Simulated assay, not measured.
Amino acid sequence: MKNIFSILLLVIFYSVNAQNFKPYQFYNKKGKAIKAEKMVKQLADYDVVFFGELHNNSIVHWLQLKVTEGLYDKKDKQITLGAEMFERDNQPQLNKYLAGKIEAKSLKDSLRLWNNYNTDYKPLVDFAKDKNLNFIATNIPRKYASQTAKEGLESLNKLSEKEKSYIAQLPINVTLDTPGYPEMKKMMGDHAEGTKVMNFISAQATKDATMAESILNNLQPGKTFIHYNGNFHSKEFGGIYWYIKQKNPNLKMAVISVFESEDDELKIPEKEYIPTDFNLIIPADMTKTY
């Protein structure tokens, strides 16, 4: 009787553990599930790879690191890293850390690091440091984006030449033809003033255009540039992707977009799903880091 009871417990235990709890699933543009290893192999053929993220999702950050490691191997070390989370004027300090000239504490004291840097971005920076790779601070200093939102794009013309060097070449083309920008306009609401709306969109454009220019300035023949940015900055092939295409339409670029799903099997969401080259589906109930 005791043996039978033990067997029943084992059956119940394995039945519970056999449930399919999927932490993530990648799909290609055609909606076909694809293994991460196969995706990485395909990514090695691209000049630029955008890995969109939800800033507070641990699974996405872990996958960014694993995909980067895989791409490093597939490309025989020929990759460059870059990220929205680092601003252009912080490149000298970042370079010193990568070269081993300053310690992690000095980097933290000298850069405007995001609050989740230690858990979510330091592993990527340290990977670049350990492998002697370039890591590019691509974004506009936030004070200039904030200035644009308050005073308009034209206010940037008053900056010094040094300050302008941290921003994409002026004038920046701001248009609602850019995917994602009409959505921003809609989010502002019908009652928002026209100038205020366009200032807000222009601030987004300064970020996207600056990151695009930073990537273009640091491309090297034979190397893949992998860029980490908030999902909105590259979703629907808009944002940074769109600005690069205006400058160099011949570059081969891939976008990894991220979507949350309530489905345990992580099937493609039925609503608000506009696929890019590769599409990461993650559980909507995944614990948020902040």
Score class of each variant (00 low, 15 high):
Ala149Pro: 02
Thr119Cys: 04
Ala128Lys: 07
Asn56Gly: 08
Asn90Ala: 12
Ile281His: 10
Leu9Tyr: 10
Ile34Phe: 01
Glu193Asp: 15
Ser257Val: 07
Asn229Cys: 14
Glu262Ala: 15
Ala18Gln: 13
Thr138Tyr: 00
Thr287Gly: 02
Met187Gly: 02
Leu107Val: 07
Ala192Val: 13
Gly239Gln: 05
His61Glu: 04
Phe237Pro: 04
Lys235Asp: 15
Gly189Met: 03
Thr68Trp: 01
Leu251Ala: 09
Glu37Trp: 01
Glu260Cys: 01
Met188Thr: 06
Thr206Arg: 06
Asn248Phe: 07
Asp263Cys: 07
Val11Pro: 08
Leu107Ala: 09
Lys185Gly: 03
His233Met: 01
Asp120Trp: 03
Gln204Glu: 03
Arg142His: 12
Gln42Leu: 14
Gly82Asn: 00
Ile12Phe: 09
Pro221Gln: 04
Lys32Pro: 03
Lys96Trp: 05
Tyr97Trp: 13
Lys223Trp: 00
Glu272Ala: 14
Leu107Glu: 10
Thr276Ile: 00
Leu124Ala: 09
Leu159Cys: 07
Leu159Gly: 01
Tyr290Gln: 11
Gly194Ser: 11
Ile59Asn: 10
Pro123Gly: 13
Glu69Cys: 01
Thr80Met: 02
Ala203Trp: 03
Phe86His: 06
Gln25Ile: 07
Pro182Ile: 10
Gln204Leu: 06
Thr68Gly: 09
Leu170Gln: 12
Ala104Leu: 15
Lys96Asn: 12
Glu262Thr: 13
Asp277Ala: 09
Thr287Phe: 08
Val49Gly: 04
Gly52Cys: 08
Trp114Asn: 13
Ala137Trp: 03
Ser165Gln: 14
Ser202Asp: 05
Ile7Gly: 02
Glu151Phe: 12
Leu8Pro: 07
His55Phe: 09
Tyr97Val: 11
Pro182Trp: 01
Thr206Tyr: 01
Gly194Glu: 15
Leu124Asn: 09
Gly194Lys: 14
Ser58Glu: 13
Ile34Lys: 08
Lys164Gly: 03
Pro23Cys: 06
Asp76His: 14
Asn57Cys: 08
Ala145Pro: 01
Glu236Gly: 06
Lys185Ala: 15
Lys196Tyr: 02
His191Ala: 10
Asn3Val: 09
Lys164Ile: 06
Ile4Tyr: 03
Ser146Thr: 10
Asn57Asp: 14
Gly239Glu: 05
Ile240Arg: 04
Leu81Arg: 01
Glu272Asn: 15
Ile79Cys: 06
Asp130Ala: 15
Tyr14Arg: 07
